[in-house]
């Protein structure tokens, strides 16, 4: 064994004491019947799986996250492609424009979206000026649509940057080689560009999908009564109802969903290449 192991001991110590141990305490809580005392039980987990409400909410959370991920790919890929392969100058400006919103608090951004999307807000005024909508109110705020728009805005940079990096690494002459072998733009995209940027798309998808599963700020601020997702349930249990045991159980179910989805996605990335 390497004698330099002690060099990593401070981070290992920090990780164990502030991350691993608390995590195990929470696992323990999720099997307790009441607060920090009570007896060991499976009831918290059973409650979750026996109530259709929670299962529906789980599905809603997963499908929302999937939708956000897919839209991020659809918008992010062309943008990353243009940055990596089409334009020669101005890349840095675009990158900075993508990264700057990162430095703004998620809460502030959520409230900004509330202002943009509310009835009588800026978006409504603009759309009406352009005659895209009539005199009726916009009606987006406090719906699932508002939440999805905000989530795309928040997680989109992860997708663009990871795809951009995989395209940037790709030798442009591969695209030219494909064209010289009589493959048109569509075939070149489908058989060369897409397979070679797959690792970037998949890691981008993990970076968007996983945090989307756990959000609670945006659903609360922009989703209104329609906005409940697993994240808001967990938040309610911990901060409103003080139902730590059930909250912990739901949190671990969510963690399992994360584990399973990342495993499946990374397997996907490893195929071929």
């Amino acid at each position: 064994m390497n004698k330099k192991w002690w060099l990593v001991s401070p981070p290992v110590f920090l990780l164990i004491s502030f991350c691993v141990i608390p995590l195990f305490i929470m696992v323990y809580y999720s099997f307790l019947s009441d607060g920090t005392t009570g007896h060991l039980t499976l009831q918290n987990y059973l409650n979750f799986f026996q109530k259709g409400f929670y299962l529906k909410l789980t599905w809603k959370t997963i499908s929302t996250s999937l939708l956000v991920t897919i839209i991020c790919i659809l918008i992010g890929f062309p943008m990353a492609y243009i940055m990596a392969k089409v334009i020669n100058s101005g890349k840095n400006i675009i990158l900075i424009a993508i990264i700057i919103p990162f430095w703004t608090s998620q809460l502030v951004r959520a409230y900004s979206w509330q202002n943009l999307l509310r009835d009588g807000g800026i978006l409504e005024i603009i759309l009406r000026k352009l005659h895209i909508i009539g005199p009726e109110p916009l009606g987006i705020l406090f719906t699932q649509t508002a939440v999805i728009i905000a989530l795309i805005h928040i997680f989109f940079p992860y997708m663009v940057i990871t795809i951009y990096m995989s395209l940037e690494k790709m030798d442009t002459s591969l695209i030219e080689a494909s064209k010289s072998l009589n493959a048109g733009p569509f075939t070149t995209f489908w058989r060369i560009i897409l397979p070679l940027s797959k690792p970037g798309i998949i890691s981008g998808s993990i970076l968007v999908f996983v945090p989307s599963l756990g959000v609670f700020v945006e659903p609360r601020i922009l989703g209104g009564t329609e906005g409940s997702v697993i994240g808001t349930v967990i938040e309610d249990q911990f901060f409103e109802i003080y139902g730590w045991n059930f909250g912990a159980a739901v949190a671990f179910i969510l963690l399992m969903i994360v584990f399973i989805s990342t495993t499946v996605l990374s397997k996907f990335a490893k195929e071929e290449v």
Partner: peptide, 27 residues
């Protein structure tokens, strides 16, 4: 370019890394 019927050998060879030799030639 894809309608010119011109064979090209690049400086970097530009072989498709995710395909086998056979698939590269068959492309």
């Amino acid at each position: 370019p894809y309608k010119r019927n011109i064979g090209l050998v690049f400086q970097s060879y530009a072989l498709f890394p995710h395909m086998t030799v056979g698939q590269n030639i068959a492309y």
